[in-house]
Design a protein around this nucleic acid. Structure first.
Length: 561
DNA sequence: CAGGCACGC
DNA sequence: GCGTGCCTG
């Protein structure tokens, strides 16, 4: 049957491409495969429409009108990537209708379906060979068959709406965000890198002097020798390969020796320079001065997005030096950055899913949730008790064990267990809900989010205690984290629609935060629209609260009302 | 390529 | 709990 498929595809010379336009329009639907997308180029492209397949080795710009036409439905595998590539060549891409990567991800987000071959193997039990001249013809038919199969399975899991109304529209929103990019203040960032680099050089000198020898500061192995053998400092913790030299360890050692203190600062600055300084500067588009990340829509097991090249979801914020990096993300003069983040969305989701009376009441009264928890658990709200309550709240969301909580709070496991027991006796709705999650997970082999997306947990009944407990934490965390992800996805689609045709743009999503670029004149209108779309994305038993900020850069922002 | 480490939510 | 990325060896 391979030959039959291979014969099915017709190579088209650039001169004849124009003749495809009318038939494609008549078909109204086109399956696309593209090869060699890596270097902002395309090596070849297969198209299938109206029951026939063609292969183009060049000349697809003549089909720009087809690609840009929203009414012509596009079917393929990772179409956002194709859209990015076409965009580099000045060709707009609209009308994403079905994506086998995203469909397969919706059905099983725990698996890697980044390549068509992996989806074909899973759902058609059909291996895909090495690329060759006939590859496109076969891939087009594979996608056609896969679509039918995946549509059936989505329907069977009642995910067809979620797929077509959330994930598919989202892929276009993400494509636009990637294409638009976020502006970088390059001279500022370069200057900042230089000044950090000077500090690093000085710290290196100091550390070598204190150690009495030069060594590679970036090597935990060499550092471990200096700290624990040469200087005879007390090791705190072991790793697989030796003694740990992580931040927690160095903090302890810093109390008895000055080298670890310097090293902490060195590591911090080195991290900022290498991850957020140099590499960020290298990724700025020289034409636009902007950074164009890639949002991965089909990577995480919980349904969150991820971001890479560069990762804009882990830009520093906590330390002062870190905030200086963040300051390099700017709006052009006539515009502002608008940041909108969900307040405590995870705990609000937990309140909704569990129906716990105390948690619901705290949010309905718009209380500070960590204060409310502190009052409930300890009867008082000292800063210390609030911190404790906050850590416990985080622990609940992460399905944290007594062991994990003990480590986080630096207390013994017995005390940690007491805290957790106390929490569950006060918030018994939460306790019941989490127990029920575990029961369902064990019985069904999966857990679900509010929109019905599943995450399978093959290890949930494992005889291996470590694996089983890890699966149990996942079972507790995924419905919460995954539901929060569902909610912000809906909000993004609604906001993008609200912005259509305007000069305001979504730029970045950071799990519970959206960053937009907005003309100064529109800031009030857009801020209110964003708040409205985010709070109304989904109706929960508690209100969704959104905090808005605006400013010329991503670090220095003022509250919006 | 795995491990250690560190940045974010 | 969920990611990405730098560096070393």
């Amino acid at each position: 049957s391979r030959n039959e498929v291979a014969d099915d595809i017709v190579p088209i010379t650039p001169a004849n491409i124009d003749e495809l336009v009318e038939p494609i329009k008549a078909a109204g639907r086109i399956i696309i495969v593209a090869y060699g997308l890596t270097e902002n180029k395309i090596l070849g492209m297969g198209l299938r429409f109206g029951g026939r397949s063609v292969y183009l080795a060049a000349g697809w710009e003549k089909l720009a009108g087809i690609f840009a036409d929203e009414k012509i439905k596009k079917v393929g595998h990772d179409l956002k990537l194709l859209g990015r590539s076409l965009s580099e060549q000045g060709i707009d891409f609209r009308g994403i209708d079905f994506d086998t990567m995203i469909a397969a991800y919706c059905l099983n987000p725990g698996k890697n379906f980044s390549r068509l071959a992996e989806v074909a193997l899973e759902y058609l039990n059909e291996p895909i060979g090495e690329p060759n001249a006939q590859r496109a013809g076969r891939d087009l038919l594979v996608i056609e068959k896969l679509q039918n199969k995946l549509v059936d399975q989505l329907r069977a899991q009642n995910l067809d709406n979620y797929f077509s109304q959330v994930e598919i529209p989202l892929s276009t929103v993400l494509l636009e965000m990637e294409r638009y990019g976020i502006l970088i203040d390059r001279p500022y960032l370069q200057q900042l890198v230089n000044s950090f680099q000077d500090k690093i050089t000085q710290l290196e000198k100091d550390i070598y002097q204190i150690a009495g020898t030069e060594f590679n500061l970036n090597s935990p192995k060499q550092l471990s020798f200096i700290l624990f053998e040469k200087l005879q400092l007390p090791p705190q913790r072991k790793t697989k390969t030796g003694y740990s030299t992580d931040e927690e360890v160095l903090r302890k050692l810093a109390m008895v020796h000055e080298l670890p203190a310097r090293l902490l600062e060195y590591r911090h600055l080195q991290k900022l320079v290498s991850t957020y300084g140099v590499s960020l500067l290298n990724l700025v588009d020289s034409r636009t001065g902007r950074i164009h990340t890639t949002f991965n829509q089909a990577i995480t097991a919980t349904g969150r997005l991820s971001s890479s090249d560069p990762n804009l979801q882990n830009i520093p914020i906590r330390s002062e030096y870190g905030r200086q990096i963040r300051r390099a993300f700017i709006a052009p003069d006539e515009k502002l950055l608008l940041s909108a983040d969900y307040s405590q969305i995870d705990l609000r989701v937990l309140a909704h899913l569990s129906g716990d009376e105390k948690l619901l009441k705290a949010f309905l009264n718009n209380e500070d949730i960590h204060n409310a928890t502190a009052r409930e658990l300890f009867g008082e709200i000292t800063p210390q008790q609030r911190r404790l309550a906050k850590t416990i709240n985080f622990g609940i969301i992460y399905g944290m064990s007594p062991h994990g909580l003990a480590q986080e709070l630096n207390i013994d496991q017995k005390s940690a267990r007491d805290y957790i027991e106390n929490y569950f006796s006060r918030y018994c709705g939460v306790k019941k809900y989490l127990d029920n999650c575990l029961g369902l997970a064990r019985q069904q082999g999966y857990v679900t989010t509010i929109l019905g997306r599943r995450r399978y947990l093959p290890e949930i009944n494992s005889a291996n205690g470590q694996l089983r407990q890890a699966a149990e934490r996942i079972a507790l965390n995924t419905p919460i984290q995954g539901t929060a992800a569902d909610i912000i996805k809906i909000a993004m689609i609604d906001i993008a629609r609200g912005l259509a045709g305007s000069d305001s743009h979504l730029l970045v999503q950071v799990h519970d935060e959206l960053v937009l670029e907005v003309p100064r004149k529109e800031i009030e209108k857009v801020a209110e629209m964003v708040r409205e779309k985010m709070t109304a994305a989904i109706k929960l038993k508690v209100p969704l609260v959104v905090d808005l900020k605006y400013g010329q850069n991503w670090a220095e922002m003022e509250k919006w009302q």
